[in-house]
Design a protein around this nucleic acid. Structure first.
Lengths: 342, 342
DNA sequence: CTGAAAGCGCTTACAG
DNA sequence: CTGAAAGCGCTTACAG
């Protein structure tokens, strides 16, 4: 059972496919096609269950109504929520989205970009991994719209939507200080990306502004693909009684680190917040029900996703906007729960 | 700067695009095209950065190398992990995936299926919502491969990969009984779907087999889009001291219910497992670090995803397999942590 | 060994 | 008001 094509409808009615195309695209009025013919076309197309072949439309028009999304890992709820919002906002305007998880691996993202190019996507939303600067620059120079989310490269002029990471970490650290913590560590992940750097910078600045010394040994930078063990090791070094690095608070720069960190702290038999206070970036469910609900830096994920789609579609509809680059920096919330004491 | 096409390469070399197409598709040998011409073609295609237009290929060959995925919600880590695995396995074989979240809404899934049809996807992997039986039946009757995951409709002959939900719930309930619990409730969600029903049936059977009475008032069925409040209400009715429904254990049929449920239990000032024991389906991070780490029914998500892709691609490559329907039922693990006492 | 030609299913100037 | 024709970028019988 072959699919119904425009031609089938035309043949069926003894008219041209030009006419059928016009009617089905709602241009009946515009081309002053008679009411009754319009009705017939619509009726037959329904009767034969006509489904336009979007691939053929795409080839002809150069528009596929598809956007390509590259994030680190769709299984990570941070990107899951983001991806969900992007999918939903895109669907509102008739766009579909091809999802790609790069694992923060530039070779993977390179292949994914290539695949998306070949798929003729109308635009890209990308959370670029480190060392992907050249790929992104090349893309930005092309004439297909692009929006970066979560991170960006300062040297590339390109639409981008991020969060004020410096400010977020600054406020989080300040909160720990206000709660009376004296010695605060930062556990972060080596993404070699500006967003993570800004978090650590915000942390340092808050310490300095309150007259504390920044101790490099209290900043633990783990590789991106860290094992549970590595987090445990970092935590152990920071919380053990007779360690010279003994701290009374930790700022986790990602929730993956935070969740592993809390597991380690519990395993060591220490209590949050009594023995150690905690603030973490991101707000997974885990933090709501854990031993001591965690104070977090909450990012406006839905707004990031929605805005990214809106900017992208705006540029797709109006290619003359291509030159007008938008750099949007959103604010975060500090959600105070119990992990810093009261 | 227009994209390079096959024709550009052909013109550049003064050969036909037929030849170029053959070489680029690795059919140089097959058509005994001279070594040097092959080399030239490859060189020029690299030089001009030729990217094949997959949309044009798709129109011509009727294959888009794209699969459509419909799950309930990609922001839910259960589906995030599943989706991730599907994306990854598909990518291995050169397939891209369009992600769709149905929100368990049959009208949405109908639109999504239509969109995917129009996009000429080569196959579907679907976790169908309730009341989508007609849509799925129609799809299964078509000649595009289809694999259902997580749930299925007993009356539709169709590839499907699920888990032994009855057995999982049976074992989970038995575990609670072995841990000395006397009165066990089940909180589930009204998906009107076989997988959820099987869970509750397994729970009932375990009670019966151990000589307990099944009390319908201990089975709380919440609507799919439940608020936190509704879970809280159900929990409250089950755990309050002087409630006639007072129980000493709860089996949660989804992790969303479980996470909300734990929040409610904590809010009521009750202790897990002392006051109430808990087992939940699914294994989110939250359960590892929560007040009392939760004993869970862990589903082999990666295996589900991987197998789904393999069956789908097998059928895409060998359409004659279309008749051989595969129904796969995987086993679950009961991961014992602390929420049932020791 | 290589090329001219048809055709996938559309849209869209162009002609009348 | 309607239709014939070209063409998007490929692949693939067919011919020589």
């Amino acid at each position: 059972m072959k699919k119904t094509s425009l031609n089938d409808i035309a043949l069926h009615l003894g008219v041209s496919k030009t006419l059928v195309s016009f009617v089905l695209n709602g241009k009946g009025k515009e081309f002053r096609i008679s009411e009754e013919i319009c009705k017939k076309v619509l009726a037959v197309s329904k009767e034969l269950n006509y489904q336009p072949n979007r691939i053929a439309q795409g080839l002809r028009t150069g528009r596929t109504n598809t956007i390509g999304l590259i994030i680190a890992d769709i299984a990570n709820p941070f990107f899951g929520i983001l991806g969900r919002e992007i999918e939903q906002e895109a669907a509102k305007f008739g766009y579909r989205v091809i999802f790609c998880s790069s694992d923060e691996n530039p070779e993977k993202s390179r292949q994914q970009i290539e695949m998306l190019q070949q798929s003729q996507v109308d635009g890209y939303i990308i959370s670029p991994p480190k060392d992907s600067e050249d790929q992104i620059r090349a893309l930005a120079l092309g004439n297909v719209p692009l929006v970066l989310i979560d991170r960006f490269f300062p040297e590339i002029e390109c639409n981008q939507i991020t969060v004020d990471n410096f400010d977020a970490a600054y406020r989080a650290t300040n909160h720990l200080l206000r709660m009376g913590r004296k010695r605060i560590a930062n556990i972060t992940v080596n993404l070699d990306l500006i967003n993570m750097n800004q978090r650590t910078e915000g942390y340092k600045q808050a310490l300095r502004d309150s007259g504390h010394r920044v101790e490099e040994s209290l900043i633990k930078v783990l590789p991106f693909s860290h094992e549970n063990k590595e987090v445990a090791k970092a935590v152990k070094d920071l919380v053990t009684k007779n360690s010279q690095n003994k701290v009374d608070a930790i700022l986790f720069s990602t929730s993956k680190l935070g969740i592993n960190g809390i597991e380690s702290i519990s395993a060591l038999g220490l209590k949050i917040p009594d023995d150690i206070a905690i603030v973490s970036f991101d707000n997974p469910d885990a933090y709501k029900i854990c031993v001591s609900p965690v104070t977090v830096v909450n990012q406006p994920l839905k707004e990031i996703g929605k805005t990214a789609v809106q900017i992208l579609l705006g540029e797709i509809k109006h290619p003359d906007n291509h030159a007008k680059i938008q750099k949007i920096i959103l604010k975060t919330d500090l959600i105070i729960r119990k992990s810093c004491g009261s």
